[in-house]
């Protein structure tokens, strides 16, 4: 049973395409595992479509649509588009399996076409950075091997952890597949796992790891997120 879900504002931004790719991927992965959030996204999509496509404000329509029509003739565009005889095929379900530390994992749909960086390991932690090219936001796959964990740390900016497989616990609760944890600077935690755990993580905190009083933990923080 998934205990932690993205909040509705997050799901709504996902539905309207307004999240950066790394966060949209987190929402997408969660929805692949959580039918109730998937349904919420569907409702927000439907609502956005109704809002967006309902009757245009007549003034807006006159001002914008006229300039739009003069800017590029509708008929020319229609002519050009309908010359094309081709039809697109339905996209097929792709899948991708990865191997880390001797274990196999099937990746969620959102990540099958994202390049994976080389895995690097530190103790019982392994991390691969994802080639999202999402500006300051970094996304990674993080594997905690059985009986491993992450030393206590705080967050500047945000740190999103989404469990793909396995379980971990910290001083607040224990977490399993699909659990979606958005932590900010108010949180300190110390995740530990008995069984091993693969997570998708996103962080936007670039400077935090290079300066400040958390210097000792920082190299590790940089490694993880």
């Amino acid at each position: 049973m998934i205990k932690y879900h993205p909040d509705n504002a997050f799901l709504q931004s996902f539905a309207t395409g307004d999240l950066p790719a790394s966060l949209a991927a987190a929402a997408s992965i969660h929805c692949e595992m959580c039918s109730s959030c998937a349904q919420t996204v569907q409702s927000y999509t439907k609502q956005a479509a109704t809002d967006g496509f309902s009757a245009l404000d007549s003034r807006t329509e006159n001002a914008e649509a006229c300039s739009y029509r003069s800017m590029s003739s509708m008929d020319a565009m229609i002519e050009q588009i309908t010359k094309d005889e081709e039809q697109d095929m339905a996209s097929e379900n792709q899948s991708k399996t990865i191997q880390v530390q001797g274990k196999q994992f099937e990746l969620p749909r959102a990540l099958v076409n994202i390049p994976l960086g080389k895995w690097s390991s530190l103790g019982r932690l392994s991390r691969s950075r994802l080639g999202m090219n999402d500006g300051d936001i970094r996304a990674s796959l993080l594997l905690m091997e059985a009986d491993g964990g992450v030393p206590e740390h705080t967050h500047k900016g945000f740190e999103l952890t989404l469990i793909l497989e396995g379980h971990f616990k910290d001083e607040f609760d224990d977490y399993g597949p699909g659990d979606f944890l958005m932590l900010d600077s108010n949180h300190t935690h110390n995740p530990q796992t008995d069984t091993g755990c693969l997570c998708y993580t996103v962080s936007n905190d670039a400077q935090h790891f290079t300066k400040g009083f958390n210097r000792l933990v920082n190299p590790l923080g940089y490694f993880i997120y």
Binding site: A25, S28, C31, Q42, A110, L111, N133
Partner: peptide
């Protein structure tokens, strides 16, 4: 991001193609 990966299908496909409600 200078990415031609057309990620949208991977992100939303499984939600959009599910039947409504």
């Amino acid at each position: 991001a200078n990415k031609e990966d057309n990620l949208s299908d991977d992100l939303w496909g499984h939600i959009d193609n599910a039947e409504e409600d």
